[in-house]
Design a protein around this nucleic acid. Structure first.
Lengths: 189, 189
DNA sequence: GTCTATATTTTGATAGAC
DNA sequence: GTCTATCAAAATATAGAC
């Protein structure tokens, strides 16, 4: 296990504060106080507040992109790929609870990297949609609008970070399985 | 149709800006520019920036509370009540797209009214959970953890505001019906 | 790597003229 | 109801000493 650099520590603490109040409401003084140093000292490790947000969001967005590419290249059927997507979100969300908050709520405060992020996100959604369309074509899933299905599943998965920390008793494998039941098979008996 | 007061107009425009950048990142100068006046003039109609956020969030949260109370007092079964909840969210979200963003993302910036909001929200979730528990007990819905089911359905419904404006072609009755299929009956064939 | 001191902008908000 | 002028506080960030 590689030792955490001071910059990484700053970014980690910042992500936690960003989750609580949002990027704009967290000041460099807040962050410094949480680190036990003065605000000016932060700039020995990072160039700007913007840089911190860039790192949190882009690093995480690229992990989702990598995960989706692996899923796409697997030879699972539609339902199997959806299961893999659920597992990907449970895994990345549980590993990056704080980063997920920035990814969902503060991406609009990206500057130069904003378009790049939006491109990653739209590619991800396009891949997701095409999995659903294949499933409809092959008769694996119901013939409802793929856009609404994707929206429903994806917003649930993207909001996992709000909810995972409250449920430490629930292990992640069990959570994936329960979500698979609810999101795919429905709650109707 | 009662004419909109100047204060109501300010709150309406503010909600739109808050959706785009979040409460903290929107300045009174931004808001004034959007109204076509100077920042100082805003204070002839509202006491503070905080007051605007209070009005947006609390007004909307109370509408959800009222709606849930009506649903609870109906004699529908569990599935019927869930259908009503979906319709409530589709209706209120489509009528208050911008306000829903503040409700979801900026409630932590409430001050005195923050505890009141949190109470309304936890009461709402408690009512939701009890509907699911009744449905499990009566055998109407599957015996999965009610907490996970509620989380899954409610995060989807709470995120409708992100997605409704993009889908103006889809009418609201149809959207409710599709969500009912997907959230209740699942997407599995 | 952290500090103090400080520059520069921007913020929410008020006073008073029209 | 809106304006100009302004205040006081808070923001990001830099310079230079230790």
């Amino acid at each position: 296990m590689k030792k955490e650099t001071r910059q990484e520590e700053i970014i980690r603490i910042a992500a936690r504060l960003f989750k609580e109040k949002g990027y704009s409401a967290v000041t460099m003084r807040d962050l410094a106080a949480e680190m036990g140093i003065k605000a000016a000292s932060l700039y020995n490790h990072i160039n700007s507040k913007q840089y911190i947000l860039d790192m949190i969001i882009i690093t995480l967005a690229e992990k989702f992109t990598d995960g989706m590419q692996q899923i796409q290249s697997s030879d699972d059927n539609c339902i199997g790929k959806l299961k893999q997507i659920i597992e990907l979100h449970v895994k990345l969300s549980s590993q990056n609870i704080y980063g997920m908050a920035s990814l969902n709520n503060d991406w609009m405060h990206l500057a130069e990297k904003r378009d790049y992020y939006k491109k990653l996100r739209s590619n991800y959604e396009e891949d997701f949609r095409s999995i659903l369309e294949e499933g409809i074509a092959s008769g694996e899933i119901v013939n409802e609008k793929p856009e609404v299905m994707m929206f429903s599943i994806l917003t649930t998965l993207r909001s996992l970070y709000i909810w995972i920390p409250k449920k430490e008793d629930l292990n992640l494998r069990e959570l994936s399985a329960t979500l698979n039941q609810i999101l795919i098979k429905g709650i109707n008996k």
